[in-house]
Simulated scan of single mutants.
Amino acid sequence: MAGVAGVVICLGVALATPALAEAGEAPGTVTNVVELTGRFRVDGAATAQRLTYWSRGPRGPMQSTGAIYVPPGPPPPGGWPIVAYAHGTTGIADQCAFTTEPRVYYLDSLYPELLRAGYAVVISDYVGLGTPGTHPYLDGPSQARSVIDGVRAARAVAPELGTRWAVFGQSQGAQAALFTAHLGPADAPELQLRGAAATGPPSNLDLLIPLAGPWIPRLPLEKTPAYVAMLLAGLRASAPELDVDGYLTPTGQEALRVVETECITEANARLADVAIGEMLAKPLDDPALWAAAKAMMRIPTDGYTIPLFVGQGLTDMEVPPPLTAKLVAELSLSGTDLETHVYPGDHLGAARAALPDAVAFLHRVLAPA
């Protein structure tokens, strides 16, 4: 689940009604703008900027950073349509913010492809990544609001952007994209959210929470101990009433320390040989803990008013295909406008293979009415 300037909920209530922002903290309010230079520039971008803006975390206002790339030339009638890119897992430590280090595939391939297609590109780092507070990992609602408020922030500094937009995400960002699709139309009625494309979305993970305990061995999946540690670290910071520390062994405490200080690649190298069961002193079967996990991670399977695209790799060892198959089946049964593609590759390979199909989907949903 994959240097420039500068969970998870209070059960039910904080998620449904985030604390009111104080003056100057309204969602999308920009507090800093810097030009992106050097390796952070993108071929085909007339302007490139990094923003700091206010968004909404699990319990109220939090800041996020992000970036905006605008195509060259005069905008079309109504302004440039926007693709908000929701990135995959980088880690939860501040130095892991997605826009603070050059990422070759995105800067050289993905963003230029979207710019050539005639879209402005907006990226959110999500709240707590490079900004005060702990990033609430896999808290879908707060990640979605980071994306929505990133679009608001981008339009505040780039008036040539229009109101038509879509969200496109991979892995953690795919989960964020689907939550954005569900929340966005009502959350930002001043914008026209037209569709959401998601590749490798982690889903149905909350169903595993009450089954987890000291008996879980090492699993034949990739990065699982690091992912679990990041999830628990976000819960510990955002919902202290759950007493996450009480579920952890000394090995678990050390795992959380690792993910709070190192990014995903380094954390995975440190934790690859740790079994999830070694991290847990007792089962995670507290109903309050399960309710918190469900509220943050359970991707809605009905109630969508815009089209969705879901792509999945058959050899994905980070987001196993059976979990996505369950999600797709439930979305289909609910009558969601859904386009589904399966690719032969792994987690990242499938995401790259899906790009032409995802761009075609974006063209379809973002076409002028």
Rank of each mutant, 00 (worst) to 15 (best):
I148V: 15
M230F: 02
A272W: 01
N268W: 03
V328D: 03
P225D: 11
R39G: 10
L36D: 04
F179P: 08
I123W: 00
P201H: 01
T37C: 00
T251A: 14
V34Y: 06
I9A: 10
R41H: 00
M62Q: 14
D357G: 08
I148Q: 11
M230I: 10
P77M: 09
K326N: 01
P220L: 08
P344N: 11
A350V: 11
V7F: 13
L362F: 09
A156T: 12
L235Y: 08
H363R: 14
M279L: 09
S203M: 06
E241M: 14
R236N: 07
L178C: 05
G28H: 09
H347L: 09
P102I: 00
D285M: 05
G173N: 04
A16V: 14
H182E: 04
V228C: 02
T89W: 05
A255V: 05
I68T: 12
A272Y: 01
A46K: 13
A325D: 12
P214H: 10
E254C: 05
D243M: 03
E22I: 03
V121D: 07
L221T: 12
W54N: 12
A351R: 05
P75N: 10
P132R: 08
W80F: 13
G173A: 04
G6A: 11
E190N: 14
T131E: 13
G12H: 08
W165N: 10
R270L: 06
T31P: 05
L191D: 11
G140C: 04
A176F: 07
V34D: 09
V121H: 04
P240D: 11
I216E: 06
H341V: 03
V228Q: 00
D285I: 11
G130H: 02
A117I: 01
A369K: 07
L327C: 01
P250N: 12
G128F: 06
L208V: 08
T47G: 05
M317R: 13
L323W: 05
D108Y: 06
T199W: 04
A14C: 14
D273P: 03
P159R: 12
M1L: 15
L284Y: 03
G234P: 12
A275D: 07
T90V: 10
V147Y: 13
A23G: 08
G277N: 01
G38S: 07
R352V: 15
T89H: 02
S203A: 15
C10W: 12
K326P: 04
A19N: 01
A158L: 00
L183C: 02
E241L: 13
P189A: 15
I209T: 09
R298C: 09
G150D: 02
G3S: 15
L138E: 13
L331M: 00
L289T: 03
A281I: 03
V258P: 06
T265D: 14
A329C: 02
F40T: 02
D316F: 08
S332W: 00
G246V: 07
D273L: 13
T315S: 11
S124L: 10
A45N: 00
N32M: 14
T315C: 02
A93V: 14
T340Q: 03
H341I: 01
Y69V: 07
A176Y: 09
P240R: 09
Q172S: 02
L129S: 15
V319D: 00
A166R: 14
N204K: 11
L107H: 06
K282V: 01
P74I: 05
T336W: 04
V310C: 13
G173Y: 00
G140K: 10
T324F: 09
